[in-house]
Simulated scan of single mutants.
Amino acid sequence: MKAELWHSHAREEPYPQPGIHTLEELRAMSPAARMRVLRAQRLWMTSLQFDWPQQHRLHQMLTECVEDNEVLGHGAKEIFAVDAEYGVGKSTLVRQWAIRLYREAVGEAIDSPQIPVWEPRPGVHAHHVPLVWVNLASAANIKEFNTAILEYLGYPVSGTIRSMNLRVADALDRHRIRLLIIDDAHLLNTRPMQGHDVLDHIKHINTELGERDGTMILVGAQLDGHPILEDPQIGARLRYVPIGPMGIDTATERSQWQHFLYGIEQRILPYLPRAQPGLLAGQHAPRIWRRTQGYVGDVAELVRRAARAAAEDDRWTITVDHLENADLKERAKRHAMAEQRHKEQVAQAMAKNAKKSAAKQAAR
């Protein structure tokens, strides 16, 4: 990614919300008109991002970390690490927050398609790039790490590692970079041959960034036990926040799950004129969790596909078969099958124990 692309992403407006029609209006439409309406609804629903409890908590913690680092003494600052297994939506959560922070940082300049410009010194003009987002490649070493930053800023990427280090440090000042987000941080090359040098480089960049009161954020999968977290110097400055899918084991979790589904209802059900309030948060809450295991992205996809099927078959409310027949990603399928097998094993074990107890009672 380059800074121009990030700036254009930050300028994007939400996908336009389509109009809401009554059941009579929908059924009176010609096939072509109805197809256009359903397409607009599908695209809008696909663009939606739904709020969930961990999102608010994470965004607040990220903001507090950045604000704290701005007023702490100069030098190496606190590093924030967001960890989750694949499919939870960690990058999306951090990206939502980062887009908002970027828009606030550039102010009215967000209205222009061009990256804002400032004067680092009188008569010298440079792009104002308050945020750098780095997508790491597999087994990224120091040079590849530096290359990702320099390419984002449009700098040359040739030369020795030392010259690239100096270029990165100069860019921090020249472009007023205050936030460096490293996505897929688990892909850093931390194997024995280069791992120590790579971790030292991360610490060096964090110090350089900290001298400008900036913040480094690591986003990765299954970082618990990773060399990044086990490095004592990094660990001393690290705020580690694991996130996961939504659960339903406790009363609090079930309440949060229903509240989350209710929020989806508020957006989706107006486009299903035969749907009743509580359809998702009440009637179908357990089934939706079973099919998605609380993965927010999978929930959004499941509800979107079910709503589309409900419109296409003219029932205009989400039913059991809409939810059961919706085709989801392989992760959701595998986890749902594993969950079903686990339930069956538990039921078999309970039946076996009950049979043994009955046999003992009969023997007495």
Rank of each mutant, 00 (worst) to 15 (best):
L38Q: 13
T22Q: 02
Q60E: 14
L48T: 05
A76N: 01
D173C: 06
A338I: 12
H204M: 09
I205S: 00
R305L: 10
A98V: 15
P273R: 10
A336K: 06
S357L: 10
V106I: 15
G247P: 00
H259G: 06
Q54P: 00
I182R: 04
N141Q: 07
T190S: 14
A140Q: 04
V66S: 01
E211H: 11
V320Y: 06
E344A: 10
R11M: 09
R254Q: 14
A171G: 00
A326K: 06
G89T: 07
T250Q: 05
D173N: 08
M193L: 13
I177F: 04
D231N: 15
M246L: 14
A137T: 14
E64T: 15
R239M: 05
L38I: 08
A310Y: 04
G220N: 08
F50N: 00
N135F: 04
I243Q: 07
A285H: 14
A109T: 08
V198R: 01
D313N: 15
R162K: 11
M61E: 08
Q258G: 09
A10G: 06
V198F: 05
G214H: 05
L26R: 08
E211S: 06
R34N: 03
L302W: 04
H226I: 07
R121I: 13
S138M: 06
E208K: 10
T317F: 14
N69S: 03
W316S: 01
I20F: 02
A311L: 11
T63Y: 03
I288H: 02
M246Q: 08
M337C: 02
Q55K: 13
A251M: 06
R39F: 14
H74A: 15
L261I: 15
E208T: 11
I20H: 03
R42N: 12
Q340M: 13
H186A: 12
D249S: 14
E253D: 11
Q96S: 08
G19C: 01
T207R: 13
H226S: 04
Q114V: 12
V168Y: 00
E339F: 11
A309I: 02
R95D: 15
A338F: 03
E12P: 00
M246Y: 02
D51L: 04
K77P: 00
A32C: 00
A185C: 09
T317C: 09
E211W: 07
W316A: 02
H335E: 11
A137R: 07
P286L: 15
I243M: 04
Y15H: 07
H128L: 07
G73D: 07
F145M: 01
N69L: 12
S47A: 14
S91Q: 03
V320C: 02
C65T: 15
I182A: 05
S163P: 00
Q283W: 07
H284K: 03
M164P: 00
Q348S: 08
R39C: 02
Y152H: 09
T317G: 02
Y295T: 08
T46K: 15
D68P: 00
A236K: 09
P270Q: 11
H259L: 12
H59E: 15
P16C: 02
L209R: 03
Q233W: 13
P270V: 13
I142V: 15
W6H: 07
P232C: 14
E64K: 07
E344R: 15
A307R: 04
E4L: 08
H9G: 01
G73E: 12
L218A: 07
W316Q: 08
I248A: 03
E208F: 06
R121G: 02
K90N: 10
E265I: 12
